[in-house]
Design a protein around this nucleic acid. Sequence first.
DNA 1: CGGACAAGCGGACTGTCAATCCGGTTGGCT
DNA 2: AGCCAACCGGATTGACAGTCCGCTTGTCCG
Lengths: 189, 189
Amino acid sequence: MSPQRADAVRNREILLGTARQAVASGDLSLQLNEIARRTGMGVGTAYRHFPTRRALLEALAAPAFAGVVADARAAASHDDAWGAVAALLRGLLVRQLADAAFAEVIAADRADDALPETTALRVEFAALARTVTDRARDAGVLRADLTDDDLHHLACGVVFALGLSPDPGARLDAYLRALLQGVRAPGPA
Amino acid sequence: MSPQRADAVRNREILLGTARQAVASGDLSLQLNEIARRTGMGVGTAYRHFPTRRALLEALAAPAFAGVVADARAAASHDDAWGAVAALLRGLLVRQLADAAFAEVIAADRADDALPETTALRVEFAALARTVTDRARDAGVLRADLTDDDLHHLACGVVFALGLSPDPGARLDAYLRALLQGVRAPGPA
DNA sequence: CGGACAAGCGGACTGTCAATCCGGTTGGCT
DNA sequence: AGCCAACCGGATTGACAGTCCGCTTGTCCG
């Protein structure tokens, strides 16, 4: 009746927890052999739950991804067209900074080996982002030469730039300001 | 008398050429075993010339790196403080787009296993970039909350963003405009 | 020219890590 | 209790980075 056995559910949670801890401590390599060893499980168990590094990565990223989708939904129903763009970008930056796994997932557009649930999130997010972006462009507050994909890419680029700093969190606000100023339509004057 | 034997010089050139070709065709993995096989040389020969992937990468990147240093020197002696920043950033973007190996080298600040010559280029570039940046900030045309390192990081971030596009070259101008607008000091009004 | 020898070469080998395979074990149902 | 599909463990394979060392050859000197 239940889709899987109780021990399997438990083991999956343990693996996810251990992996999340590894990522939080700065190790994004997600070596399944190593994670399995840390949990005391066999390697086979780890690989059955997460057949590839990518599968584990996307499982880790799912909550954060769902978060930005929620952000985007809120932004899409926001009154202020520019405020919506700013909220969307800020959310993207903050969540990527807080979750390296999510940052890697959202930056990789390669849908080849993506889990279906990740693809679903990506599609939903793309639609919302497009709404927000189009509205801002129509209102003349967003540069006309930038698409929703461009904003997505630039946000990932800024996160990459933050990652080059010794203390990314300390530069977040400055880079966000620059990003927003950069994508805003130049004054008509 | 000569620092190395004629065959060694020749082999080094062949390896570099093969590697450059691999990078140009989109393969940045620089697997020395594979490159050696393609040249018909033994693996040992390849590894003697380039002990690690990084060594080969930096050798490939050296000309492009020297190019941006030249750009930076020209920019530093430019009259217009803002024009110098624009020229510097444009050069960084264009050269990184044209040479993926250089893009990887300049993005990685890790000096751990860097070749001394690469470190020298990096130091020289940093000094010139600092000059240009400080001048622009003093002139009030560059955002006061951005350092020379920030510009460096943001440029690498924009290149990363370009890499997410299906056709990076097509978006270069748009992203460069956004970058310049983003780092420029907001109007005093 | 030709002999000596350091510089250079080749490729077998080791270590690491992702991913697979399959014999043994166990949770959950009747 | 007894069955069996689902699950587990870990030895194993395969790909790749990098090392080691015996053999070859370019170069110099007599």
